[in-house]
Design a binder for these strands. Structure first.
Lengths: 205, 205
DNA sequence: AATCGATTGTGTCAAATTGTACAAAATCTG
DNA sequence: CAGATTTTGTACAATTTGACACAATCGATT
């Protein structure tokens, strides 16, 4: 059942469904339909039913889906039915923002360390932790068994940092630096460079 | 020629090509091939050729593409052969980071104002500008003719802010808040919630 | 218990996207 | 300058993705 390969594009939509479901749950709703969920997230009801049905029969005809049940299932599928430790590389403004970001709570993630190679930043207090020296990064990541990193270093340093992260055992990278990085197939990278995101919209203006 | 409808998915790849080309140009290269560019961005050479050929015959057989020429064309296609003014809504950590972000320079964008509804933040200096009161947002956006906004407010305020932005004439929104917002068809929204981005990767761990 | 309205899960088809292959054109080499 | 090499642009095939339709099922109602 879980044997068939699920397309990336479906996996990418699940967090969006989850976010909407959590919003409904917070508002006190108990059940929803593919129709209603679709209106929330701007995706057709049929698409949502088909996406969800890849993982099992979670709905009930005539009634729809139990919101809490579906939330639990999605969290399990996405492996966020636990807390993942995350490190931030680069203690610039964006690194700071991510290090105190309180939106990770209840969404499956916890920042556990932030690194920078600038000696003036090392030791600086950011929220609950101190900026650590990049020189110690590999050791720390290995000893903490962290698998996820967010990169906010300048473009010129991103590949070098990425190589060190991969070597230290990082498997997922959220890259805010405006540059493509090369990684082995076993490592997943998502790009989130603000300027590139804006450039995707100007065509339509 | 520009009459045919270009799929969103192609438009979305163009900024990635552009970023790689600018990187090559900075490194002093004059020409490149679909092969080489593909290796940089992790996309097949055929795909790149097909994407680019949607807009004209920009390459030369045997030689490839003139990097500077292709950069100019892509900037023109994406309408970033000019500087777009952008506003930031929400002066939290992420808003701060975006307001001083220097990665917009040379990429087609310039932050011109930042707003918050918290009276304690209004008036605070951030880089070159002061945080302005949200109450004045609509007026300011209209008078500046800004078309692009980045939202960094809490999820609970995002829809209300979005409605005001749309009403003030904003046509592109980069939304960092962890919530889907509803907008008219004439407005484009991109989502960039950090937690959702991380949730897209944990499945593969 | 029979009927009715709502809603799922899925089979089928259509559309969109990507991959493959190759002729044509440009450059390079000796 | 002839032949080898490189590389584009595109026709065609394959694959992936999305839309549509509907039987099956559930709960509510009479």
């Amino acid at each position: 059942m879980n044997a068939k390969k699920i397309p990336d594009i479906i996996i990418g939509r699940l967090p969006v469904y989850l976010r909407a479901l959590q919003h409904m749950a917070d508002a006190g709703s108990k059940t929803t339909s593919s129709q209603e969920l679709g209106e929330h997230v701007g995706i057709s009801a049929a698409q949502i039913r088909k996406d969800i049905s890849q993982f099992g029969e979670f709905g009930k005809q005539g009634t729809g889906y139990s919101i809490q049940f579906l939330i639990d299932k999605l969290r399990e599928i996405l492996k966020i039915d636990r807390i993942w430790d995350v490190v931030v590389i680069g203690a610039g403004d964006l690194g700071h923002a991510l290090a105190h970001y309180n939106g990770f709570q209840n969404r499956g993630f916890r920042v556990v360390a932030i690194f920078d190679n600038d000696k003036n930043k090392v030791g600086q207090q950011i929220g609950d932790f101190k900026v650590e020296d990049s020189a110690t990064m590999s050791e720390r990541i290995k000893s903490l068994s962290v698998k996820i990193a967010m990169i906010t270093v300048p473009a010129s340093a991103a590949q070098e940092v990425t190589d060190k992260l991969v070597q230290a055992g990082i498997k997922s990278i959220l890259n805010y630096a405006p540059v493509n990085v090369t990684v082995p197939n076993s490592v997943k990278v998502q790009y989130s460079d603000p300027a590139t995101n804006l450039q995707r919209m100007t065509y339509y203006l």
